[in-house]
């Protein structure tokens, strides 16, 4: 479970870089700078994903606590 989540986080973090690593600045500036908007939307998803991941981890801890008590 823990490993799965770690892999998920790494994929979330690295995926945008995989897209932009192959490109140069001209790629983002091509076709009316549309890819800067794509970057912003990716970033929005990334922020929400990281925030939800942290919440997920907290809830897991809580679940473990309840399991240990019962």
């Amino acid at each position: 479970m823990k490993l799965n989540r770690a892999i998920g986080l790494i994929v979330c973090l690295v995926y945008p870089y995989l897209i932009f690593a192959q490109s140069n600045v001209d790629f983002i500036r091509s076709t009316g700078k549309i890819y800067s908007v794509v970057a912003v939307v990716c970033l929005l998803f990334l922020f929400l994903a990281v925030y939800l991941y942290r919440l997920d981890r907290k809830i897991s801890d809580l679940e473990k606590k309840i399991k240990n008590e019962s």
């Binding site: 076709t31 009316g32 549309i34 908007v37 912003v40 939307v41």
Partner: peptide, 15 residues
């Protein structure tokens, strides 16, 4: 200068 980035209004300004 803005071109397509005017669409960022829906994400940057809205947030």
């Amino acid at each position: 200068i803005l071109y397509e980035t005017i669409r960022n209004t829906f994400f940057h300004v809205a947030i």
